[in-house]
Design a protein around this nucleic acid. Sequence first.
DNA 1: TTGACATATTCCTATATGAGAATATATTGG
DNA 2: CCAATATATTCTCATATAGGAATATGTCAA
Lengths: 111, 111
Amino acid sequence: MARAATTSDAFNAVAEPRRRDILNYLAMQERSVTEIVDAMEMEQPSVSKHLKVLKRVGLVEVRREGRQKLYKVNAMAIRPLHEWTSTFERLWKHQLLRIKERAEANNAQKQ
Amino acid sequence: MARAATTSDAFNAVAEPRRRDILNYLAMQERSVTEIVDAMEMEQPSVSKHLKVLKRVGLVEVRREGRQKLYKVNAMAIRPLHEWTSTFERLWKHQLLRIKERAEANNAQKQ
DNA sequence: TTGACATATTCCTATATGAGAATATATTGG
DNA sequence: CCAATATATTCTCATATAGGAATATGTCAA
């Protein structure tokens, strides 16, 4: 078996940095493909292909406006990623706490 | 250019579902490779290869204990994912609020 | 209808994968 | 040292890319 398809879920789709760039850009507001192309400094076909992947996994939505197509983020589709990472939040906070404690103990010893 | 290497960053590493499974399992506590193999119901070489990827991007840490190697999560490496997804939190909360408002308006009309 | 603009698709290729099978390496007890 | 246990590596193969180039499709204005 090869690697899971980029379109298999949001995790795979956002693994590609260019697609995260596009999502970051769209987070501000809805944009046409040309606007994305100009902002990202990517070839238009590349942008279209990335948008296709993002649309497939529900990370963006499109609507037509004249000859343009306006893409916007569907933030809800990012939630599963956020929730998954949140399960580890307790762990890294614990880690940070220990680092802080160690630093303070170190400081106290120097006094 | 092909897809970015799974070892290029945490985003790519956790795109693979089996690796997320392993991280979830390790979130509870440090475990040996054999324990992971038994829990995940995967072949031992597969587990070792996945652990190699996770280690490469800093998502896990290892220490030897006799003939065993004990792996544990390094939660800090998951933070970048969490922070990136957090950027969109405002957006989906806004989305949820609008859904709620619409539901309430709908309810009021039925009264 | 035609031309111009906007977006999408197809074809190509180098490349990296994940699983499975086989094998190698490392560590300990006796 | 040897045998047993624990883990890692190598090899092969089917598969899915991402980007570039070329082209197709869609939509409006005149």
